[in-house]
């Protein structure tokens, strides 16, 4: 049921226009963080207010919305955000990636390849990829303006010198179209290869930090690396114990206090679809019986 006490998709029209203008600038300058006057939302900063505002500015009554957190549709914050849009936008919702026209996500890109006509909206906590190297906004803005990314390369190279590899495993920085270094939000670096050449529109919203950025379809996105240490997407060296998939990103679940572990797809919709298609893993109920 739509809650008629609020405007369609909650935000007032002037706010949506402001956000829409910022989204278009983001599309025009891929990877550049566009400042926007983020509004106070009825949910806490850090819980997806940026993503929610971007989604609200994009939704039409005809859309079908999917919301995931950690790849799952049933995590509490995903449930809460989905409910918010059911209530204020009256839109259809789904858990199936293929059926969704707008997908709001926190920390994952769905396993199933996205297609034209879909929009993937990322919730972003810290949009500035240089922030942990330089806390000052005034400084990082200059670094982006001058394309001065030496500091980032130095940091990554120090990693290699110390550990033999780059010790960033999520929110792994990327270069967009050879120009801006961009934070892909805290997705595992396993997901990084899906950022580039994607037929869907990818939008990034950081509410508290008041930034929106974007990747148009088929944008060139390169994970930062070195010739002698090429980027490697990695995942746990296991198959999904429920659907048997060997190529999906896995959650590790502790099953007892004696070191018992199992690995399951983090993308719940992907895993369920595979199981209903008959795929089985090591610990599928049928196998155990």
């Amino acid at each position: 049921m739509t809650d008629h006490a609020y405007n369609f998709a909650y935000l007032d029209e002037a706010t949506k226009r402001m956000i829409r203008r910022a989204i278009l600038k983001g599309i025009a300058v891929p990877g550049y963080q566009v400042p926007f006057a983020s509004r106070e939302m009825p949910m806490p900063y850090g819980w997806g207010t940026g993503g929610v505002q971007v989604t609200a500015a994009c939704l039409t009554p005809e859309d079908t919305l999917k919301v995931i957190d950690q790849g799952a549709d049933d995590t509490t914050n995903a449930v809460s955000i989905r409910k918010f849009f059911e209530r204020t936008g009256g839109v259809e919702t789904t858990t199936h990636t293929s059926e969704a026209s707008v997908i709001q996500t926190r920390h994952r890109i769905p396993e199933e390849p996205l297609r034209e006509g879909q929009i993937l909206v990322y919730q972003v906590p810290i949009p500035e990829p240089l922030r942990f190297l330089e806390p000052r906004e005034s400084e990082t803005r200059k670094m982006h303006a001058l394309e001065e990314y030496g500091l980032m390369h130095v940091k990554l190279y120090e990693d290699i010198a110390r550990h033999g590899e780059i010790s960033t495993s999520y929110a792994y920085p990327v270069n967009v179209e050879g120009r801006y270094v961009m934070d892909p939000s805290p997705i595992p670096k396993f997901d990084n290869p899906k950022l580039g050449g994607n037929p869907a529109i990818q939008l990034f919203g950081a509410g508290r930090e008041q930034r929106i950025y974007a990747l148009p379809p088929f944008t060139e996105v390169v994970s930062l690396d070195f010739e002698d240490h090429p980027f490697q997407a990695s995942k746990a060296d296991h198959d999904c114990d429920l659907c048997g998939c060997a190529t999906s990103y896995l959650d590790e679940v502790i099953t007892d206090d004696r070191g018992g572990r199992m690995f399951v797809c983090s993308d719940t919709d992907f895993c369920e679809s595979r199981r209903s298609a008959g795929h089985r893993g090591r610990l599928s109920p049928e196998e155990m019986a």
Partner: peptide, 19 residues
């Protein structure tokens, strides 16, 4: 119907700018 029509119009503009 400003909220609904402008939402649809924006999506058309977004698709235009993005493609």
């Amino acid at each position: 119907q400003a909220p609904q029509q402008s939402a649809r119009a924006f999506r058309a503009v977004l698709e235009a700018m993005a493609r």
